[in-house]
């Protein structure tokens, strides 16, 4: 049950969007598809939501084949596309009512499922959807995708373009929906959101890099990472890149994540080097690898 994906490949003319994708999503799981723009996330979503047909491979949603049983699947899934796809000229309430009606249900019938989410936008129920803020649009879109009580929920980059507070709230809502027994497949380019999923698949250039729980994925990171910071960020990066033993240098928030080629690396050596480069207020501290680090390592 859940979602089964076996050897899915998909090409558009000469561009290979997906290459031999295989993974399963268990019943009731919150599964994250993590990868940058253009990795093939949306294409995979469209195949699973019966909007596209794969060139090779098979996939099934709760046992229904995405190609043969597409009508059945369209009754039991909820889909929130990456682009805001509601009617901008309809009000919040009219949008919700419309989607309830075409799925053959009413707002009242499934109100308890969307209550937590809808209650936050209900004060604006007479406002046109086009006039809502990003966070509210996304809550409305989620309500519309949930109104028919789907068994499986597909959310394609639901938090792109949404403020950090709304993003946090959104993930809390997903957790609550999961507790109600809904299987959720969510894609995101934000690595920090990956940690909130039960399991994640890292995807790039149409290939799955790794599938595991977020904790396991971090554990597999092969090197020790150091947070380095100094007064002049730009010069710091330049200097680190000049350092002959560097393995990896990339900015990470207010720090630079640094890894060294050597196993017996001594941070003091690096400190001396950086001081010679006229950098001031240098700090070098060990840090935990994140999913982003793992991703960068795997994507090499």
């Amino acid at each position: 049950m859940g979602i089964k994906i076996e050897n899915i490949s998909k090409s558009f003319k000469k561009i290979e969007a997906l290459k031999d994708i295989t993974f399963n999503v268990n019943d009731g799981e919150l599964f994250g598809l993590i990868g940058p723009d253009g990795a093939g996330k949306t294409t995979l979503f469209r195949i699973l939501t019966t909007l596209l047909i794969a060139n090779e491979g098979t996939a099934s949603i709760v046992g229904f084949d995405v190609e043969k049983d597409f009508q059945k699947i369209r009754n039991i899934i909820g889909y929130m596309p990456g682009k805001f796809s509601l009617y901008q000229d309809l009000t919040v309430e009219e949008n919700l009512k419309f989607f309830a009606t075409i799925f053959g249900t009413t707002i009242e019938e499934n109100y308890d499922l969307i209550k937590d989410i809808y209650i936050q936008i209900e004060p604006f129920k007479n406002r046109r959807a086009g006039k809502l803020s990003g966070g509210m649009k996304q809550k409305l879109a989620l309500s519309c995708a949930l109104i028919h009580k789907p068994k499986v929920l597909f959310l394609d980059e639901p938090t792109t373009g949404v403020d950090p507070v709304s993003r946090k709230e959104f993930w809390e809502m997903l957790k609550r929906l999961q507790q109600k027994g809904i299987t959720i497949l969510v894609s995101t380019p934000y690595m920090d959101e990956a940690a909130l999923c039960d399991r994640i698949a890292l995807i790039q250039d149409g290939r799955i890099l790794q599938i595991d729980t977020p904790e396991e994925i971090i554990k597999h990171y092969p090197k020790t990472i150091y947070n380095v910071c100094a007064d002049n960020m730009y010069k710091l990066i330049e200097s680190l890149k000049k350092y002959t033993h560097n393995y990896n240098v990339y900015p990470f928030g207010e720090f630079v994540h640094y890894t060294d080629k050597r196993i017996d690396f001594n941070p003091n050596e690096l400190l001396h080097f950086l001081e010679e480069q006229q950098l001031k207020n240098i700090q070098i501290n060990k840090t935990q690898p994140t999913i982003e680090d793992t991703f960068m390592e795997l994507a090499k």
Binding site: P81, I102, F103, C144
Partner: peptide, 13 residues
């Protein structure tokens, strides 16, 4: 153009 066709397709309609 607005992407709503995508949602209409993924509905029982």
């Amino acid at each position: 153009e607005l992407g709503t066709m995508e949602i209409l397709l993924v509905s029982p309609l």
